[in-house]
């Protein structure tokens, strides 16, 4: 219960956001918050998490907010890497070879979802392959 008190503000924000399929569960000293939301709500919740637990150091919360579940095939995605270009790979995993690149802030198209981490995308130049979803943000 103590963890739900510590992260009360976050749980309340997730409830109000709204986060779809929100689940809050405490087990073995870890609070699990799962659900689906827009990218903006996810960002807001993560900023709040960083405030309640500076540097995310306590290891007592797993905040699993999926902002990519609601994105459908054909959606436009912006490449949101920090500085570099986004790798396009032959398979879903960084152990697969790089078959192309998408520039930072380039807009690409979602062709198919392999899983929540890897999507098959296509650039306007016709380059195709798997990219890491962490660096893809839906154009809203």
């Amino acid at each position: 219960m103590a963890l739900q008190d510590k992260y009360k503000e976050l749980i309340d924000a997730a409830t109000a956001a709204p986060v779809v399929n929100l689940q809050v569960r405490e087990q073995d000293g870890v609070l699990y918050i799962d659900g689906e939301s827009s990218g903006a709500v996810k960002q807001q919740l993560w900023d709040m998490y960083g405030k309640l637990d500076p540097d995310y150091a306590a290891g007592d919360l797993m905040l699993n907010i999926n902002s990519v579940a609601g994105i459908s095939e054909g959606a436009k995605l912006k490449v949101t890497t920090n500085k570099t270009n986004l790798n396009i790979r032959s398979g879903p995993g960084t152990d697969n070879s790089i078959v192309g690149k998408a520039a930072r802030h380039e807009v690409v198209t979602l062709v198919r979802k392999e899983n929540d981490q890897w999507w098959w995308i296509k650039t306007d130049d016709g380059e195709e392959g798997y990219s890491f979803t962490q660096y893809l943000t839906p154009v809203e």
Partner: peptide
């Protein structure tokens, strides 16, 4: 944290 869906239970980052 998103890897919780794949079975990750806890992250120790001390």
């Amino acid at each position: 944290n998103a890897l919780k869906s794949m079975g990750l239970k806890k992250i120790e980052s001390n």
